[in-house]
Simulated scan of single mutants.
Amino acid sequence: MREIINFLREAFRDKNFLKIVHLTENIVSKVLSLGIIIVVFICILDLIFILANYLFITGELGYFASTVFEVFGLFLNILIALELLENITVYLRKHILQLELVLTTALIAVARKIIIFDPKQYDKIDLMALGIAIICLSASYWLVRKSHEDK
């Protein structure tokens, strides 16, 4: 029992504990990276099957035009996943969270929502809220870029 207490006491010293935290962060980041890579490839396969279905199997005229926003949404989902992967990769390299990348990812996510926005399904206030979100994220991005230029 005394050995366990000594082991835990040594493990929870600041220097050793920070090593454990750093190792845990690296493992979690790598697992998340692998997960996102798998999701990206699955999304690409899904997109290929959907496009093939719309173009070659259904054969209905005008059917693809009505679902083009859904296809754009799938493309943007893949782009968002790649941005998340980039965020994790930068974190693994530098062990810092780059605010510019996070804001860029958020801008892409909100832009995706605006692109696939269905006015029949949502109220006008929802579109205005997305517009305000874009303005706030853009202003935040500009402020971050401006602060980096000054340095």
Score class of each variant (00 low, 15 high):
50 I>R: 11
90 V>L: 07
43 C>G: 02
10 E>S: 13
110 V>K: 00
148 H>F: 14
84 L>K: 02
9 R>L: 13
74 L>F: 14
145 R>Q: 08
148 H>Y: 12
5 I>N: 09
60 E>P: 04
57 I>R: 12
107 L>I: 12
80 I>P: 00
130 L>H: 03
120 K>F: 15
63 Y>D: 08
72 F>C: 07
63 Y>N: 04
148 H>P: 00
39 V>E: 03
54 Y>R: 11
61 L>F: 15
98 Q>N: 06
111 A>S: 11
83 E>I: 03
61 L>M: 15
106 A>M: 08
95 H>R: 14
49 F>M: 13
76 L>C: 02
25 E>Y: 14
140 S>L: 09
107 L>H: 08
25 E>R: 11
76 L>Y: 03
130 L>G: 00
59 G>H: 11
112 R>H: 02
85 L>E: 07
112 R>T: 05
149 E>Q: 11
144 V>F: 05
97 L>G: 05
130 L>I: 04
70 E>V: 15
146 K>W: 14
151 K>P: 00
47 L>K: 01
133 A>C: 05
76 L>V: 03
84 L>Q: 06
67 T>K: 12
11 A>Y: 08
131 G>C: 09
42 I>E: 02
17 F>M: 06
132 I>V: 09
32 L>F: 14
115 I>G: 00
1 M>D: 08
26 N>D: 10
139 A>I: 15
113 K>C: 00
133 A>Q: 08
56 F>Y: 09
112 R>E: 00
151 K>W: 13
134 I>V: 11
33 S>G: 13
75 F>P: 01
120 K>C: 15
75 F>M: 01
146 K>I: 10
116 I>F: 07
11 A>E: 06
48 I>Y: 03
103 L>V: 10
17 F>D: 04
129 A>Y: 12
115 I>C: 02
60 E>V: 13
83 E>C: 02
3 E>H: 15
102 V>Y: 08
132 I>E: 01
35 G>V: 05
39 V>P: 01
50 I>D: 09
76 L>A: 01
6 N>K: 14
141 Y>N: 06
135 I>T: 14
27 I>M: 11
20 I>Q: 07
28 V>P: 02
73 G>D: 01
